[in-house]
Computed example of a mutant assay.
Amino acid sequence: MAHRLRPEGLSFVETAPVRLVFAREVSAPPEVVFRALAEDVSGWAEWFPAVTSVQPLDDGAGRDVRLRGGTRFRETVLVAKEPELYAYRVDVTNAPGVRALVEEWRLSPAGAGTRVQWTFAADGNGAFRAVLRLARAGLGRSFRDAVTKLDRRLTP
């Protein structure tokens, strides 16, 4: 059953009760990585294994995301500032226990490529928070695998 989450802004990335931050360097330049994140949203399913589909909504102001296992998110894009920042919040989900969720993708030049930093900021009931903390290693691995796959897709 889908439920509405607390509508947090970008500052939640710094204040959330649970913050998971992961980073990796890729060969592609920031502008190219940004376009893959913010403009080619339906392409996420090709490089992020947990994602089965992403559809842009409201002329790019939102997204409908489906994950493996049946989890769904309806999101609002909070910031799309090329080439350094792409962030969104989840407004509605069928995931149990979650109260608020914001994800931030921060891009910065790193040599000839890009440092990609993903922050997963969340609040939820005690069970949800505990599961997220336990899932940290798996989420980190999923992020690294996805960004590596994205880099292969973007770099000729």
Results as ranks from 00 to 15, higher is better:
Arg4Gly: 03
Leu5Glu: 07
Arg6Leu: 13
Arg6Met: 11
Pro7Arg: 14
Gly9Tyr: 01
Leu10His: 13
Ser11Arg: 12
Ser11Gln: 12
Val13Glu: 07
Val13Met: 05
Glu14Val: 03
Thr15Ser: 15
Pro17Asn: 06
Pro17Thr: 01
Leu20Ser: 05
Leu20Asn: 00
Val21Cys: 11
Phe22Ser: 06
Ala23Pro: 02
Ala23His: 05
Arg24Trp: 00
Pro30Ser: 10
Val32Gln: 12
Val32Thr: 14
Val33Thr: 03
Arg35Pro: 01
Arg35Glu: 15
Ala36Glu: 04
Ala36Ile: 03
Ala38His: 02
Glu39Val: 12
Asp40Arg: 15
Val41Pro: 08
Ser42Ala: 15
Ser42Met: 00
Trp44Ala: 14
Ala45Cys: 07
Glu46Cys: 03
Glu46Ala: 15
Glu46Asn: 11
Phe48Pro: 00
Phe48Lys: 13
Pro49Cys: 05
Ala50Met: 11
Val51Pro: 02
Val51Ser: 09
Thr52Tyr: 05
Thr52Arg: 15
Thr52Gln: 14
Val54Pro: 06
Val54Met: 15
Val54Tyr: 10
Pro56Asp: 09
Pro56Thr: 11
Leu57Trp: 04
Asp59Asn: 14
Gly60Glu: 08
Gly60Ala: 13
Ala61Phe: 04
Ala61Cys: 06
Val65Gly: 10
Leu67Val: 07
Leu67Pro: 01
Leu67Glu: 11
Arg68Thr: 14
Arg68Ile: 11
Gly70Met: 11
Thr71His: 07
Thr71Cys: 11
Arg72Lys: 13
Phe73Asp: 03
Glu75Thr: 04
Thr76Met: 05
Thr76His: 13
Thr76Lys: 12
Leu78Cys: 03
Glu82Tyr: 00
Glu82Leu: 06
Pro83Asn: 11
Glu84Phe: 13
Glu84Lys: 08
Tyr86Val: 09
Ala87His: 03
Tyr88Trp: 10
Arg89Ile: 01
Arg89Gln: 07
Arg89Gly: 02
Val90Ala: 12
Asp91Tyr: 02
Asn94His: 08
Ala95Thr: 09
Gly97Ala: 08
Gly97Lys: 10
Val98Phe: 08
Leu101Thr: 00
Val102Leu: 10
Val102Tyr: 10
Glu103Tyr: 05
Glu103Gln: 15
Glu104Asn: 01
Leu107Ile: 06
Leu107Tyr: 12
Ser108Lys: 15
Pro109Cys: 09
Ala112His: 09
Gly113Asn: 08
Gly113Trp: 04
Thr114Lys: 09
Thr114Ile: 04
Thr114Ala: 10
Arg115Tyr: 02
Val116Met: 06
Gln117His: 00
Gln117Glu: 15
Trp118Glu: 07
Trp118Arg: 09
Thr119Phe: 03
Thr119Pro: 07
Ala121Ser: 10
Gly124Tyr: 04
Gly124Phe: 05
Gly124Leu: 03
Asn125Ser: 05
Gly126Asn: 04
Ala130Val: 03
Val131Cys: 02
Val131Glu: 10
Leu132Cys: 06
Arg133Asp: 04
Leu134Lys: 06
Leu134Trp: 10
Ala135Ser: 12
Ala137Val: 13
Leu139Ser: 03
Arg144Ser: 13
Arg144Asn: 07
